[in-house]
Design a protein around this nucleic acid. Sequence first.
RNA 1: CGGGGCGUAGCGCAGCCUGGUAGCGCACUCGCUUGGGGUGCGAGUGGUCGACAGUUCAAAUCUGUUCGCCCCGACCA
Length: 558
Amino acid sequence: MRFSKIFIPTLRETPADAEAVSHKLMLRAGYVRQLAAGLYIILPLGWRVLNRIQAILREEMNAIGAQELSMPVLHPAEIWQQTGRWDTIGDEMFRLKDRTDRDMCLGMTHEEIMTWLAAREIRSYRDLPQIWYQIQTKLRDEARPKSGILRTREFIMKDSYSFDTSTEGLEESYRLHAEAYHRIFRRCGLTFYQVESDPGMMGGATAHEFMAPSAAGEDEVALCRKCGYAANVELALSLPPKAGEMDWPQEEVHTPEKRTVQEVSGFLKVSPDHFIKSILVISDRGPVLALVRGDQELHEKKLSKIIGDFRPAQKAEVKELLGVEAGFIGPMGQSVRRVADSALREGVYISGANKAHYHMKGIKAERDFSAEWHDIHTAKAGDSCVNCGGALAVERVIEIGNIFKLGTKYSTPLKAFFLDENGQERPLIMGSYGIGPARIAAAAIEQNNDKDGIVWPKSIAPFDIEILPLNMKDAKTIEVAERLYGELVAQRFEILMDDRDERAGVKFKDADLIGIPVQIILGEKNVAEGLVEIKDRRTKEAVKVSVDEVVKRVTSSS
RNA sequence: CGGGGCGUAGCGCAGCCUGGUAGCGCACUCGCUUGGGGUGCGAGUGGUCGACAGUUCAAAUCUGUUCGCCCCGACCA
């Protein structure tokens, strides 16, 4: 491809409303343009990258026996009503009516439709297992699209679905996917982790996410380098550092106007890890007093898994339900439901005395109060691994893929049954598996860039090699450029040749910005001596080779 | 949905406080120049100042409403 024939609108300055590095570079280098919040136009260069990623996805999915097909984006409501998600999903689903006033929605995922198909077409255990996948547009009315292409309202997704006769079969399909995902992300040149994740609204028991470390990510994962434990902080278990043992006798302490752990801690000159933080929340089934150590943060998702949806109590509710104003509440003598973080089981603590302007010193779990014990704090870097005691690290990550064991959550309501060897009707055992190709591209940029621009991994770069004839007025330069272009294209390389009548500086700047991994630079003086430079985009190292050697050289190094 | 910020040429911005001819840099077009890291000079093109309403002799500027975009949070198959 000649630069003059492909639309690459590079920008000298970064558009002001881009924040994430990948977003800035994709805009500047002419890969994407924004249409509206969360809606992006993929320009020719960007489309090449996505196509390369999708080619890798197809190869690896086909390799595990998955079959590509294509599903509608527009769905009738009834199927979503049968699984209940028409009502549970809410505003994130785009809904509309067709001309006959029939309720429809735009597909945000395809469990329902895939299962609908399976329900009709799969009858016997002899038809199983099946893995079906598609690479197709998904639509989600995100509350807050952000970070360029990382969180959009319309995006391409590779989604696959497995149908098995048994949980053992599901285990196998799940394992095949996990392995394929590892190969895919490795081939795309990404650094990534597989972590335990929260199945969330997808249902099912087990789920994992594939996470690419990046400051632009929206998630955090806890990692143990010693035993390999890795989990989304939404559910990561951890042991906070032990608080020093105190031998306080039980006594009330006057703490006038000191309400927060920080205030009382400063007032009494006792570090926060010797306090119990008491937080009253209102769940659907009534008030709950959540207890965490003073130096820890309550993890709301963990708590809601135990008590269901909840909201923080208002000041007036605290007074009404516990008989004392917020700031002086504590676990002792309370009759409301109490859920406490496991770290509080050991040690002696200070907490509210349930008496205005007083705190109680010398509180011991089980002796002075009881509670349901759970891990409800947020895992932090420096906590210990619950498996091996190793130190946990916490990293910010981009979710690039996920895998779910669904079981029969969709097959039962949609009546996707098969007959087993004994003629018994049983529901299909399902799994679902997703990858976002645009997120792979964005993560690749996040992980591979420098001050000059993008540094694509070879496997997903829009072109393999860029040829830079520096002086388009030099006949010899053009002759050599054309010759190399022809020879390299014949070798099946994807070549971008900057044939524009631009100055050398402009070509260098654009080439570095666009980020094609190999540059072949044709300077007038070198060309006159039969030489060209082959330059590595990442290291910026260049070697001079004779024109005749170029093809051999790039073939052997790629 | 809650909080904050911003809408002036394709991009980056000034002008607004204190109302009176719409500006700068880059990009773009033409000419010359230059030719290994965004060359230099000259001449040009391009704007309903997000929209609507109000105040005023006069609104980019003041007031109100509204729309859009970004960030933080909530939410997130």
